Computed example of a mutant assay.
Amino acid sequence: MKVLFVEDEPVLADEMLGYFSSQGFLCESAPTFSAASEKIESYNYDVVVIDIGLPDGSGMNLIPCVSRQNEETGIMIVSAKNSLNDKLEGLNLGADDYLAKPFYVEELNARLHALYRRKMLKGNRQIVFDDFTVDPQSKLLFFRGKEISLTKKEYQLLLYFLVNKERVVSKPSIAEHIWGDYFDQADNFDTVYVHLMNLRKKLTQASGKDYIKTVYGLGYRFTC
C-alpha cells in the first residue's frame, strides 16, 4: 500500500513513517499544504492521511484535490479537534474516514487496511483470478492452494497490476507507485523490467498462461 502522510508535527510524522514502513507500506510525507499539493498533483497514492491543521492552509482543501487526481484513492482525516462539524465537513468533501488525535498507530493501521480493502480491493479480503489467490493480509500468492514465492517488489507489482487490471500502465507509473520518490534517482527503468519479467515467469510457470501483455510504446496490460 502506498500512503502519503500529510502531517506537520515532526514527532508524529516520524512515528507514522517508521511504523508503517516496518509494516511493508511504501510511505511518503509532506509537512505543509504546499508540499502535499505538489505531491498529490504529481503522484498517485492508495491512501492519503491528512491532518486538518497545517501551517500554510487547511487540510480540508486537499480532499477535493486527491479526489480529482484519483477517485479510488482513500482519504483519512486526522485532527486534534474532535469536532462533529469537522467530521461532517470532511466526509461531505469526500473523505472516507476520520480519526481524532491522539491515536494509536495500530488503530490507524487497522483503519487504513479496511479503507484499502473497501476502496482499492472493492471490499474483498482476498483477490482471486483464475486458479490464483492473493491474500493481502499475509501478502502471499497461492496457485491451487500452493504458495508461489514472490519477492516484496514482485508482490507489490502483482497487486498494482490487479488493481489496474485490463488497463495499460506505463513503466514510469509502475516505478512511481512501487518505488515512490526514491526512484527519481534511478538512471533508467531496467529495475522495473527485471522485476516484471521475474513475476511474469513465475505466473507463467505455475499456470501456463502469460497474464502480462506488452503494449508496445505504451507499457503493459494485465489480462486474465
Results as ranks from 00 to 15, higher is better:
180 G>A: 15
118 R>G: 12
215 V>S: 03
30 A>L: 04
208 G>A: 01
44 N>F: 12
98 Y>L: 05
7 E>N: 04
87 K>S: 06
203 L>Y: 10
133 T>E: 08
104 Y>C: 04
45 Y>N: 13
166 E>D: 12
19 Y>W: 01
143 F>E: 02
121 L>N: 11
15 E>Y: 09
134 V>D: 00
132 F>T: 05
170 S>L: 10
129 F>K: 06
9 E>P: 09
85 N>R: 07
84 L>S: 12
104 Y>K: 06
12 L>P: 00
52 I>S: 02
166 E>Y: 15
190 D>C: 13
212 I>F: 12
34 S>I: 08
35 A>M: 11
162 L>V: 04
40 I>T: 04
189 F>R: 08
160 Y>T: 06
50 I>M: 06
41 E>K: 11
156 Q>G: 05
14 D>C: 05
10 P>T: 10
122 K>P: 09
33 F>V: 02
57 G>L: 03
171 K>F: 08
69 Q>F: 03
104 Y>M: 00
152 K>D: 15
185 Q>K: 14
56 D>I: 13
8 D>K: 07
52 I>V: 00
89 E>K: 15
173 S>D: 13
190 D>E: 13
151 T>Y: 09
190 D>H: 15
80 A>Y: 10
160 Y>H: 10
120 M>R: 15
208 G>W: 02
171 K>P: 06
141 L>Y: 11
178 I>A: 14
180 G>W: 09
133 T>P: 04
122 K>I: 15
59 G>H: 00
127 I>Q: 04
19 Y>D: 01
221 R>D: 02
208 G>P: 04
202 K>H: 12
196 L>T: 00
185 Q>I: 09
85 N>E: 07
135 D>E: 09
190 D>G: 14
45 Y>T: 04
185 Q>G: 15
75 I>N: 01
39 K>V: 08
63 I>W: 00
47 V>Y: 02
197 M>N: 09
77 I>R: 00
112 L>E: 08
163 V>P: 01
135 D>V: 03
16 M>Q: 00
20 F>L: 03
40 I>L: 08
120 M>E: 11
198 N>M: 03
173 S>L: 04
189 F>K: 13
89 E>Q: 09
197 M>Q: 14
149 S>G: 12
57 G>T: 05
115 L>M: 15
53 G>A: 11
37 S>F: 12
75 I>K: 03
119 K>S: 14
15 E>R: 00
50 I>Y: 01
81 K>N: 13
146 K>C: 11
32 T>P: 03
69 Q>Y: 01
39 K>S: 04
215 V>Q: 07
110 A>K: 10
168 V>I: 09
162 L>W: 10
102 P>F: 07
104 Y>R: 12
6 V>E: 02
165 K>Q: 14
90 G>E: 05
67 S>C: 05
198 N>Q: 14
181 D>E: 15
224 C>Y: 15
160 Y>V: 07
17 L>G: 07
99 L>W: 08
189 F>I: 10
181 D>V: 11
